[in-house]
Structure formats: C-alpha cells, structure tokens
Amino acid sequence: MDQLAVTKTWLQSHCILVPNDWLQACIDWIHEENHGSGLTQGKLNDMVYEQWLLSDLHELGMSCLPVNLATDVRFNLIGTYALQIDSIVDVSQSYYSQQQKLKGTDNSNINVTAETSIKSWEPKPTRMLMLSLTDGSLEIKGMEYRSITQLNVTTRPGCKILVQGKILCRRGILLLTESSVKVLGGEVDTLIEQNTAENFLQQAVEKSSTNAGKQIKSEF
C-alpha cells in the first residue's frame, strides 16, 4: 500500500476523514520540510495529525455526520465523530454583562446597595456553553447539557473535538456531557481572527433580539 492509503486508513481509525488531495499535499510538504530523510510511518501519521488539528474543516469539506441531523426535530446520534468548534458562547449569562467583563468596563460599584439582603443585582447561574460545530459540511450546535470541564469560553476557535457514544440531538443541537466529548486540541488562525469573543457576543446579542417575545405553554 502506498503511504497515502496507509496514512488515510490510520486517520480513519481515529474517525478523521480527509480528502486525498489535501492528504497528498500534506505528505509532500512534510517530506520537503524533512529533506527526504526517512520518516517512519508512525512519525508521519503524527505530523499529518498535527496539520489536521490546525486545518479548517470547512476547507477540507468532508462530511461524516448524517445529513438530516441538522433538520430533524429529534435524532439519536450514535458513533464517534471528529468535529471542529467554530465558536463558543456562554448562554447562561447576559451577553452584555459578558461584553462588559471582556472590555473591563464592569464595575463592582454596581453591586453596592443599601439593601444588605441583596448581594448582586443579577442572578448567578451555572454556565451553559453553546458550541458552533462542523464536520466540514454540516453546521450544528452543541449544548453543554451537563458540565463539561474540558471546555471554556477561552477555548480557541477551530479546536477539534470528538463526540462519541449515543447522543440525543434536537433541532440540530447536540446535548453534550463530559463523557460524550473528547477535546483533541488545535485551532484555526482565520477563525481566531474572525470569531473573537467580542464578535460572538455581538452576534449573539443581535440574533437573540430577533427571538424576543417568543413563548409557549403546554397544559396537561
């Protein structure tokens, strides 16, 4: 078997799909960097994997997720999938208060009041991250349904993760827990530039306002 096929199989065993032309270019580049000195297959695999962590899955354009995942009201996802985090935002706190903290314009005087029974004028919720995820073609969301300690708002855009096991997905949102996520690492330069925390928050504020007023009630 040629090197490309061996590497590709190795990647697939780690649930990572890449296009042939990208993989070939990657292998060629690695050889060039190493001036043709002999690389073991293991070493080559590692170096390709490193490149994959830093690549933008949108550009690789592969797809591994079932296509109806994003549209079905309810879907049970089973298996292991390598995905990229495009952006992360905490939806448990107001975006405005998070913007204030980022800019350093938050001010503890806001919590000073003569009413000693009031500790803070805003409630203290538990965090819930929402992740924008992609397999390279499909865009879905991941909800921090139960606390996931490996992730936080400063996780770099472009970071790769594996989602694994049996995961409930509703309306294109994966309900993630600590055990269903494995952080692989990596980042994407272009995403880091575009998707700064300031930008996410601003987008989140704008988008959120379009849903204002929506309510539902079910009686039993």
């Binding site: 448990s92 706190q93 975006y95 929402m130 409930l168 309306r171 539902i216």
Partner: peptide, 23 residues
Amino acid sequence: WKRIRLFDHMACQVLYEHCIETP
C-alpha cells in the same frame, strides 16, 4: 428552573421540548 434562564432561544426551546415529551 434550576438553570434560572438562558439567553439562547433555541437552547431553551430544545430543553422545553425535552420536558414536554415526557411530562
């Protein structure tokens, strides 16, 4: 709700639908 409130409409709706499915 113990989560108090969420600032993402879809996130809340999904959990709401989850609840009314088996109320």
